[in-house]
Amino acid sequence: MPDFIQRRRLARILDRSAEQFADCSPPEKGWIATMRLALGMSAEQVARRKGVSRNAVYQAERSEKEGSISLKQMESLAAVMGGTFVYAIVPNAPIEQLKYQQAFKRAEAMAAQHASFAQWSPDERQDWIDDTAAQQLHDMHTDFWDDS
Protein backbone atom coordinates (compact mmCIF):
# COMPACT_ATOMS: atom_id res chain seq x y z
CA MET A 1 0.00 0.00 0.00
CA PRO A 2 1.49 3.36 -0.98
CA ASP A 3 2.19 5.87 1.74
CA PHE A 4 0.34 9.16 2.14
CA ILE A 5 2.69 11.22 -0.06
CA GLN A 6 2.63 8.65 -2.84
CA ARG A 7 -1.19 8.42 -2.67
CA ARG A 8 -1.40 12.22 -2.89
CA ARG A 9 0.82 12.24 -6.02
CA LEU A 10 -1.26 9.49 -7.62
CA ALA A 11 -4.45 11.40 -6.76
CA ARG A 12 -3.10 14.51 -8.51
CA ILE A 13 -2.33 12.45 -11.63
CA LEU A 14 -5.86 11.07 -11.71
CA ASP A 15 -7.46 14.43 -10.95
CA ARG A 16 -5.53 16.04 -13.84
CA SER A 17 -6.59 13.21 -16.14
CA ALA A 18 -10.20 13.74 -15.13
CA GLU A 19 -9.91 17.43 -16.05
CA GLN A 20 -8.34 16.61 -19.44
CA PHE A 21 -10.91 13.97 -20.35
CA ALA A 22 -13.99 15.63 -18.83
CA ASP A 23 -15.60 16.32 -22.20
CA CYS A 24 -14.27 13.22 -23.96
CA SER A 25 -16.89 10.63 -24.72
CA PRO A 26 -16.65 7.97 -27.43
CA PRO A 27 -18.01 9.02 -30.81
CA GLU A 28 -21.29 7.45 -31.88
CA LYS A 29 -19.60 5.21 -34.46
CA GLY A 30 -16.74 4.30 -32.08
CA TRP A 31 -13.10 5.38 -32.20
CA ILE A 32 -11.95 2.94 -34.89
CA ALA A 33 -14.63 3.81 -37.44
CA THR A 34 -14.40 7.52 -36.64
CA MET A 35 -10.62 7.57 -37.18
CA ARG A 36 -10.89 5.49 -40.33
CA LEU A 37 -13.65 7.67 -41.81
CA ALA A 38 -11.92 10.92 -40.82
CA LEU A 39 -8.81 9.74 -42.67
CA GLY A 40 -10.89 8.71 -45.68
CA MET A 41 -9.64 5.11 -45.38
CA SER A 42 -11.75 2.17 -46.40
CA ALA A 43 -12.00 -0.90 -44.21
CA GLU A 44 -10.11 -2.71 -46.99
CA GLN A 45 -7.19 -0.26 -46.70
CA VAL A 46 -7.02 -0.63 -42.93
CA ALA A 47 -7.22 -4.40 -43.33
CA ARG A 48 -4.31 -4.47 -45.76
CA ARG A 49 -2.16 -2.37 -43.43
CA LYS A 50 -2.99 -4.66 -40.52
CA GLY A 51 -2.73 -7.87 -42.51
CA VAL A 52 -6.29 -9.01 -41.84
CA SER A 53 -9.53 -9.25 -43.80
CA ARG A 54 -11.93 -6.36 -44.35
CA ASN A 55 -14.49 -8.30 -42.32
CA ALA A 56 -12.02 -8.42 -39.41
CA VAL A 57 -11.93 -4.60 -39.44
CA TYR A 58 -15.73 -4.38 -39.48
CA GLN A 59 -15.88 -6.97 -36.68
CA ALA A 60 -13.40 -4.91 -34.63
CA GLU A 61 -15.60 -1.84 -35.12
CA ARG A 62 -18.65 -3.79 -33.92
CA SER A 63 -16.71 -5.28 -31.01
CA GLU A 64 -15.59 -1.82 -29.93
CA LYS A 65 -19.18 -0.55 -29.86
CA GLU A 66 -20.23 -3.65 -27.87
CA GLY A 67 -17.33 -3.18 -25.45
CA SER A 68 -15.77 -6.55 -26.19
CA ILE A 69 -12.68 -5.51 -28.15
CA SER A 70 -9.28 -6.12 -26.58
CA LEU A 71 -6.92 -3.33 -25.63
CA LYS A 72 -4.26 -4.94 -27.81
CA GLN A 73 -6.60 -4.84 -30.82
CA MET A 74 -7.43 -1.17 -30.21
CA GLU A 75 -3.73 -0.36 -29.93
CA SER A 76 -2.92 -2.23 -33.13
CA LEU A 77 -5.71 -0.62 -35.17
CA ALA A 78 -4.84 2.85 -33.91
CA ALA A 79 -1.21 2.30 -34.93
CA VAL A 80 -2.00 1.17 -38.49
CA MET A 81 -4.10 4.32 -38.93
CA GLY A 82 -1.35 6.58 -37.60
CA GLY A 83 -2.81 7.04 -34.14
CA THR A 84 -2.14 6.11 -30.55
CA PHE A 85 -4.63 4.26 -28.40
CA VAL A 86 -5.02 5.85 -24.97
CA TYR A 87 -6.49 3.89 -22.09
CA ALA A 88 -7.41 5.50 -18.78
CA ILE A 89 -9.55 5.19 -15.70
CA VAL A 90 -10.87 8.64 -14.98
CA PRO A 91 -12.43 9.32 -11.56
CA ASN A 92 -15.97 10.69 -11.53
CA ALA A 93 -15.02 13.19 -8.85
CA PRO A 94 -11.73 14.43 -7.35
CA ILE A 95 -9.97 11.61 -5.47
CA GLU A 96 -10.19 13.45 -2.13
CA GLN A 97 -13.95 13.78 -2.60
CA LEU A 98 -14.30 10.05 -3.32
CA LYS A 99 -12.29 9.26 -0.20
CA TYR A 100 -14.35 11.67 1.90
CA GLN A 101 -17.60 10.11 0.64
CA GLN A 102 -16.35 6.68 1.73
CA ALA A 103 -15.21 8.00 5.11
CA PHE A 104 -18.60 9.67 5.64
CA LYS A 105 -20.41 6.48 4.65
CA ARG A 106 -18.31 4.50 7.13
CA ALA A 107 -18.93 7.06 9.88
CA GLU A 108 -22.69 6.88 9.30
CA ALA A 109 -22.56 3.08 9.45
CA MET A 110 -20.63 3.27 12.73
CA ALA A 111 -23.16 5.75 14.11
CA ALA A 112 -25.99 3.35 13.33
CA GLN A 113 -24.32 0.79 15.62
CA HIS A 114 -24.46 3.11 18.64
CA ALA A 115 -27.65 2.42 20.60
CA SER A 116 -27.79 5.90 22.15
CA PHE A 117 -26.86 7.82 18.97
CA ALA A 118 -30.49 8.70 18.16
CA GLN A 119 -30.85 10.34 21.59
CA TRP A 120 -28.05 12.83 20.91
CA SER A 121 -28.86 16.30 19.66
CA PRO A 122 -28.64 16.88 15.88
CA ASP A 123 -25.48 19.00 16.41
CA GLU A 124 -23.84 16.29 18.53
CA ARG A 125 -24.69 13.64 15.94
CA GLN A 126 -23.31 15.75 13.09
CA ASP A 127 -20.14 16.58 15.03
CA TRP A 128 -19.60 12.91 15.83
CA ILE A 129 -20.07 11.87 12.19
CA ASP A 130 -17.77 14.66 10.95
CA ASP A 131 -15.08 13.82 13.51
CA THR A 132 -15.33 10.10 12.81
CA ALA A 133 -15.13 10.66 9.05
CA ALA A 134 -12.03 12.83 9.56
CA GLN A 135 -10.49 10.10 11.70
CA GLN A 136 -11.32 7.49 9.05
CA LEU A 137 -9.58 9.62 6.41
CA HIS A 138 -6.57 10.14 8.61
CA ASP A 139 -6.14 6.49 9.58
CA MET A 140 -7.06 4.89 6.22
CA HIS A 141 -7.21 1.40 7.73
CA THR A 142 -6.75 -1.51 5.34
CA ASP A 143 -10.53 -2.16 5.42
CA PHE A 144 -11.35 1.47 4.49
CA TRP A 145 -12.88 0.48 1.13
CA ASP A 146 -14.64 -2.65 2.37
CA ASP A 147 -18.43 -2.51 1.96
CA SER A 148 -19.19 -3.75 5.46
Rank of each mutant, 00 (worst) to 15 (best):
V52I: 08
L39V: 00
E19L: 03
Q6S: 14
A118Q: 14
P91G: 08
G67I: 07
F85E: 05
R125I: 07
P27W: 02
Y100I: 01
R8M: 01
Q101L: 09
M41N: 03
F117S: 05
Q6P: 00
A79G: 09
D23Y: 05
Q59P: 04
N92W: 00
A11T: 08
R48F: 04
Q97G: 01
R9K: 08
G51A: 11
P94R: 06
A47M: 09
K29S: 09
D147V: 06
R36W: 02
P122L: 11
F117A: 05
Q119K: 15
N55D: 14
D15S: 12
Q73P: 00
L77W: 01
V80A: 00
G51M: 01
E75V: 05
S53E: 13
Q126T: 07
E44Y: 12
Q6K: 07
G67C: 09
V90F: 04
Q113C: 10
Q6V: 09
E108D: 07
Q101W: 06
F21A: 05
Q20T: 11
F4N: 00
R48E: 14
A133N: 11
D15K: 00
A103Y: 02
A93S: 14
Q126L: 10
F21Y: 14
F117C: 02
A79L: 13
G30V: 05
T132Y: 05
D146H: 15
A60V: 02
A103W: 00
S68H: 10
T132I: 08
P91E: 06
L37N: 07
L37Y: 09
F104L: 15
A56C: 11
E108Q: 15
E64F: 01
S70D: 10
P26L: 05
A103D: 01
P2L: 15
E75M: 06
I89N: 10
E75R: 02
K99L: 14
D143Q: 03
S25N: 12
S70W: 03
Q126W: 04
E64N: 00
R48Q: 06
K65Y: 03
I95W: 02
R36S: 04
Q113K: 15
K99G: 07
D23G: 14
P91Y: 03
H138E: 06
I13A: 06
G82A: 02
Q126C: 06
R48L: 05
K105Q: 12
S68M: 08
T84M: 09
R106K: 15
I5A: 15
S121R: 03
R8D: 13
A18P: 02
R49D: 08
G30N: 12
P26K: 10
M110V: 08
